[in-house]
Each structure stands twice: as C-alpha cells, then as structure tokens.
Design a protein around this nucleic acid. Structure first.
Lengths: 247, 247
DNA sequence: GAAATTTGTAAAAATAATGTTAAAAGGCGC
DNA sequence: GCGCCTTTTAACATTATTTTTACAAATTTC
C-alpha cells in the first residue's frame, strides 16, 4: 500500500472500519489490451473492484451504469478521444476523481489537463506504485474534502489550509519542512511513525537525508510548540521505533 | 550495524530450522560485478540479508529456494532477460515487491513496467539512498497489509499499529525489542517457537545475541503482562523446545 | 536420586538510540 | 556573487535498552 495512504488509515483508526463496497470500485479506460490487463491486475491485487473499457463510448456507458469511485483514463483512445470522455464525465460528476495516463508529449501543457477536469495525471514511464498512490490520493481527497484542516490542542490552533499556527493567540512560524513534518504527524496522530517513513512521506525519494535530520526537526517542533520542550507531551519519542504525535 | 551477517547465519543454520521468511532478506539480481558488490554493501550495512545473483536463471532458482522479502532486479541481464524474470516471479508471487533497476531508455515505454508487474523502479544512475528508500517503502507496504492489528485477552488489549498496550485500562510500556517479540509470538499464537527462530525473525539477520537474550525478553514480557509472572499462563515454556504464546 | 541440562531471574556491563548544540551545506532573492 | 534563511550533517552528552553474566531453580536423563 502506498505510504500516501497512511493518513487515511489513521483518520479511521478510531473504530473498526467497514470497507465501503462502492469506495473501491474503479473504472479503467485503456485500449491497449496488454496494458489493460496489467492495470487490472495491479488494482485487483490491491483490493479494488476493477471494471475495464477499451474505448471512450463504452467508457461513458460503463460510467453511467456502474458509478465507480474513481476512473483511470488513458488519453489516447480510439473513437471518442480521452479528452472528450474526461470532459463529459466531469460535466456529469464533477466530484468523481479522474487520473489520466498520458505520454509526456500529451501534457506539454498542464493547463489542458485542468481544462479537462482531470484530478491528476501520470506520465510515460510511471511506476505502478506511483499510479496507485495517485489514485488513492484522489480517492482520499474527494472522500474527505475537509481533511483535518483545523486542529487545536493545548493552546495551539492550526489551520493547515492557511498554513497558520497560533499559540495562545500568537502566531508561530514554522519553516516549510517543519510544517510538512508537523502536518504528517498530526494527520497520523497516535500512530508510531518511523524515521524512515517520515523521510519517505515528508521528504520524498529524491532528497533523502540521514535519519538524524528527522530528529532535528522534531526538536524544532518541540521547541516551538511544546509548553516544556524538555519534557514533550505531544511529540513523543518511542524509543527504537520513531515518533508519535498525541493531541 | 555489523556486516558479519553471512558467516554467522551459516553457522546457525546447523540446527534444524524451519524455512523462515525473514522480513529482511533481499535478493539482488545484477550482472555487473562492481554494481553487485556495491549494492550488497549498501543493503548489508542497512541490516538486510543479501543474496546476489548475476543472471536470470540463477535468480529464479534463488528466488524459489530462499523466499526473499523483496527483489532488486536489473533489467539488463544475460541469458534470461530481466523482463522475463520479473514476469515469472510476479506470476508465482504477486505480492512480492520487485524494484527494478533500469537505464532510462529501458523504461521509455510507459507500458513496460506495468506489464512486468514491477512495483517500482529506479533509473540509472540512481542514488543509493533513493533505492533504499524505495525498497523500504515497498517492504513496508507488504508488511502493513493484512496483519492482525487489534488483539485482546485476559484484560490486556493491544493495538499493534499504535503500539499501544493496555492492561486493565492502564498503559503498559514495552521496549522496542519486547514489543517485536510480543508481536511475533502473538501472530504465531499456539505454535511452539524456538529461540533460534525468534532470533531470526525478531532480531533479524545481522545481530545475533545469545539465545539467553530471548529468555530475558520472555521474562520481561511475563513481568509486564502476566497476572502472576511466576506461573505464566500466556507465555508458556516448552522445555527443550522454546516458547509458545497462548491467548 | 544424582548428574546433566535447561530455564528463571536479577543485576552489571555493553550497546545503541536519542537530545542537543554548533557548524557546514544548500537555496533563494537581490 | 553576497547575505540571509533553511536544511543537513557532525559531534558529543545523555539516556534507555539490550545483552551478558552468574547463580538459583526446575526439568530431564540415566
């Protein structure tokens, strides 16, 4: 499971979670049989209910009939072009997430995708994991438009959308990386997060600093947000495992 | 983090040992000796048990024999091509994460990786850290899916994800190693586990403490979790064999 | 039932992880 | 390029955990 999916998990962590049937139905529109097959396998092994179509016309029919939770759409399609399919679907169901597959040349202008109404796209040699992550992210996004945007605890209030943090009414300034770290921890509250996971999720693959970097950011967060930084209450360390944010 | 891993393990293999699916065993398939050596070092210093193969044929044999937790696979291989190896392995073990190494030109086709069933890829030249990060992410993925997350017995409740244990409502604090030991025992409840198996599975490959270390951890678990530690009910001793957790 | 082996137990010794500081490296606007 | 801010690394102190050790108790073997 892509690590991007973790916030979702933690949000639900409160109770036993009933997997909604509709929530994991996916429509894949792809004309190349080989790719179609591969995509089907990819998503099915991840527990999605997959429906596949090979052309734009059938895709539209299928979409109306089965009401999928998300659509994976190849832009290059016979008959009705992928672009038109995308537009049309978005006209009917604006909230339905669509992730577009495209050759790099197709998206020379990202503007186009926005016009189409696509929620995200994956280009050329993409890793299956990446596609999965994007679809999941798209699903998550629509599933919870108001994804924990406001949090407050212990005299601290946070507006993640505005990127505003106040402590006893006074603004607290976090740097970019501190903020991202904070947000990830909050969105995964109560769960123990390893340094590696934080590096993956917050820092990403390209720049992968040493694990000690994480410690330093935690230190900063404690200094800026804990009442008594030397005995942290919210940013807890779990020795040998990682860190854990507790409200 | 020693890298004495290999010799120690082979020594230990003397005794009768069940085919373990150690979570940190990695198969690296790479024909360039220099790269192979570098990769081996990279992963070994990170505590993985590394097995290397130079061609597709041996890779398949090795995969069948040793059941690694993940595979790092160069697409360019002599004899059987990396592509075929990938496909074949995915056909047998769809859940086994495969991270592909490839020249940029190899993945120019957006289809390729998908069809192969690879989970992720890194293009040459790649940064060691990025490769590590991707492999770890892939491993975490498989580790997280489908495992018991909540358990309770006898007034004790466990949330493995939060790493939280409560006894009659009060939190019990376990150290990292204690927790891992506990988790492994619980997930293998009712089965007798030898000390050697515990060392392999919980302690991993590169640290090999004496078997008495296991006894001490069991002791701690009993002290923290048994009603009457001197006559344990859940953490049972199977004389001459090992231990066994009973709910 | 005595010797040999295995396990229970607690405390000491050895390691390893984390906290913290300060300096180096990297980015960015000017 | 220069100065400013952020991020990362490096180093050292501190704390926590893991491992070893030694001996007592229990179990098995003969």
């Amino acid at each position: 499971m892509g690590n991007l999916a973790t916030p979702l998990n933690s949000l639900r962590a409160a109770g036993p979670e009933p997997p909604s049937k509709a929530a994991n139905r996916i429509l894949i529109v792809e004309d190349d049989p080989a790719v179609q097959k591969a995509l089907r396998r990819l998503f099915e092994t991840e527990g999605y209910a997959v429906e596949t179509q090979s052309d734009g016309k059938s895709a539209l029919d299928s979409f109306r009939a089965s009401a999928p939770a998300a659509i994976v759409l190849d832009l290059r399609l016979p008959k009705v072009s992928g672009r038109d399919v995308c537009k049309e679907i978005k006209a009917i169901a604006p909230a339905l997430p669509i992730v577009v597959l495209s050759a790099a040349s197709d998206v020379s202008d990202k503007v186009l995708l926005l016009e189409l109404g696509a929620d995200d796209y994956v280009t050329k040699p993409f890793s299956p994991r990446e596609l999965l992550a994007r679809v999941r992210a798209a699903l998550r996004h629509t599933a919870r438009t108001a994804e924990v945007q406001l949090v407050s605890f212990d005299g601290i209030s946070v507006d993640f959308r505005k990127m505003e943090i106040k402590r006893d009414g006074k603004p607290v300034v976090l740097t970019a990386q501190e903020f991202k770290t904070f947000q990830f921890l909050v969105q995964n509250a109560d769960r123990v997060i390893s340094r590696d996971e934080l590096l993956n999720e917050v820092w990403g693959y390209q720049n992968y600093p040493s694990t000690r970097t994480v410690d330093n950011h935690i230190l900063k967060l404690r200094q800026k947000l804990e009442k008594d930084p030397s005995s942290p209450v919210h940013f807890r360390t779990v020795h040998g495992m990682g860190y854990k944010f507790v409200r």
